[in-house]
Amino acid sequence: MGSEAIPRRDAPDAARIVLAHPRRPDASAHETASQDELARRIARLLDCPFLTEAEFQRLPHAVQPYCVPAETLTERECLSDSRLAGIRGEQDFFGGRVPYGFVASKAITHALVDAHALRPQGWSLHFGARVRDAVLRGYTAFSRAEAVRAARLLLETGPVRLKPAQGKGGRGQRVLESEAAAQAALLECSGADLVRHGVVLEENLADIRTYSVGQVRVGPLVASYVGEQILTRDNAGEPAYGGSDLRFVRGTLAALLAAGLEEDERRAVALAAAYDQAAADCYPGLIASRRNYDVARGLDGSGAVRFGVLEQSWRAGGASMAELCALEAFQREPALRTVRAYTLERYGEAEAPPPSAQLVYRGEDEREGPMVKYVGICAHDG
């Protein structure tokens, strides 16, 4: 669309344009294509133009965009970037805004080893207590000595999983079976990174299944979902996120809980909802139009079944294209109650997507190698 179709920022009820901004500084071809496609589809839902960065810069007047960021935003970023300055609520962007950077990482999921442990400015001592029954046994540490102490406590009941606080897709995680292994692994961690970002130590589960639970809002459309993540192998043969198969309902997580779920799904949604509410209460300033929670079900060191939220994601993620598919279906058919949608990622010279699927990316990603990503709708109203 040309710039003449875009209203001025000072118009009283001005429609917006949609912009894929900000990017990750080292975004790969696959990440950039996914972010752009997500922004295009959101623009269609909102019935407003999508502009590239170059088109936005050529606008002759100031416009406050609806942004689709690659990462969770911080309040500091929003104050320093004029394009993000208009974010006041969920209707202004797709993703999340947090008061401090660590709130967007795995670090907040667990409490410290004690109330006197090293922690960043803004850390809530209450959040860990609030979510204790919604997460697995674990600790977050911001020093090597406290991380070793946390590992020692957890090893009393079984193996421990060490997780970089800012890691994604399970990468960089290690399973530790002794204090010596924990000390060796932590010696490989940069002291500066530990102080800045922290590290998570958590009970390790066997026979694990991971549920995705979420709520997403674009304009007047709100949908919530639950489903299982699909694992695959990347081009190096390592385990990687391979997609999600999700059941959506109209409305919030409360509507999802009332939707006749299977028992394990209901438990996963209830835990995610408890985590979500605790985050809102303990970290004022949190805004999220996209809320996603990974919830694990597995066996602990004694063989008992354990459930727990692993982490949160308040940014566009692997399931976001399926989220948009569902919202589009709900917009097209006002009487529709439920939708089942999926997203799949495959590595190597994968076979072509089925005719009913929508291709998001297919090519040679400079970081991941050859891969394909596509999405689709499985079923309407069952």
Rank of each mutant, 00 (worst) to 15 (best):
V131N: 03
A180L: 09
H110C: 04
D193C: 06
H197W: 14
A129F: 04
V175I: 13
A165S: 15
A115F: 12
L153H: 11
L162H: 01
G167M: 14
S143E: 06
G191T: 09
Q173I: 11
R130W: 09
V103Y: 12
A141R: 06
A181M: 10
V98Q: 03
V131S: 00
L136P: 02
V98N: 01
A165H: 02
L118M: 12
L205D: 02
S178G: 04
C189P: 00
G95R: 05
G191M: 01
L186Y: 07
P120I: 06
A192P: 03
S143G: 13
A181S: 04
K163F: 07
T109S: 15
D193G: 06
R171S: 09
I108K: 02
A145V: 09
T109R: 05
G167R: 13
K168F: 11
A129V: 08
R97V: 15
F102R: 02
K163H: 11
A104Q: 11
L125A: 12
H116V: 10
F94R: 00
E203W: 00
Q166W: 07
R119E: 06
A115K: 15
R152K: 13
A150M: 04
E177M: 10
T157Q: 14
L186E: 00
G170L: 10
C189L: 15
G128F: 10
E156S: 08
